[in-house]
Design a protein around this nucleic acid. Sequence first.
DNA 1: TTGCGTGCAAAGGTTTTGCATGGCA
DNA 2: TGCCATGCAAAACCTTTGCACGCAA
Lengths: 138, 138
Amino acid sequence: MKQPGGYKTRQKEQILQYLTSHEGEHVTAQELSRHLEDEGTPVGTATIYRCLDQLVSEGVLRKYTLDSRTCACYEYLPHGGECSRHFHLKCLQCGKLYHVTCEHLCELESHILEHHGFRIDQSKTVLYGVCAECREKQ
Amino acid sequence: MKQPGGYKTRQKEQILQYLTSHEGEHVTAQELSRHLEDEGTPVGTATIYRCLDQLVSEGVLRKYTLDSRTCACYEYLPHGGECSRHFHLKCLQCGKLYHVTCEHLCELESHILEHHGFRIDQSKTVLYGVCAECREKQ
DNA sequence: TTGCGTGCAAAGGTTTTGCATGGCA
DNA sequence: TGCCATGCAAAACCTTTGCACGCAA
């Protein structure tokens, strides 16, 4: 999580606006570019990538690289700072992101720290899998 | 998991040989290419990718896409894939990847499945944090 | 001999970089 | 005014594809 970030520009606001209105979904740079063009307010590719990177380093977005896609996905993180206190479960099928606060996970964290010497950074960690809803559909 | 695959060639054997001798590590196509060139037995890029894809579809290798890397990683699956039930811990500072097989993690998996209805896919999940070595340095 | 495997080069797609210009504060 | 942000184009990368030739079975 860094400083407030630089100037406020039309491009930056539009990019963030799109991401926030697609909470819980993963968005690619290309989708974003296409959307902004359709809106009649195109933004250069380089700018899109630069803004996304900036938002990621500010902790506003999270960057994913899913196997199914050939390109990176970005997702808005709604709960800001709170996300460092719980784990994230990301459904590979519907793309939904679940925020889980659970003693088991806290225990896991301390177990790994004590027995494996590794301090997990919850804000960077995402557990991937398939959620209950999607499993029922099958 | 498919049939035995086609002909046996020098290139195919060397690629598999490298992967098996680096069990537990994530290898990229580029590293593989570089290695084979250093050995004095270079293999064309296209061939490398074609062989890797083939081995993945045969279930011999697993393909990853880690966030930190921009390219895909491949890993040999020692026991036909089913027994490689371990989690990955990735150090954000030194970049090292740790493979952890631990009952605690298996329990965690079943806990999340039972209590949260979410089936974790270990092959897609990487726990990020800081390893013991890097923490000592600080 | 048959047809898959290989290597080269070119194409394709995503992301980054250089540089001059534009715009916020 | 001082910087950062933007846009364009080109570059840098990773991966795939087309095609002629090579080689395993």
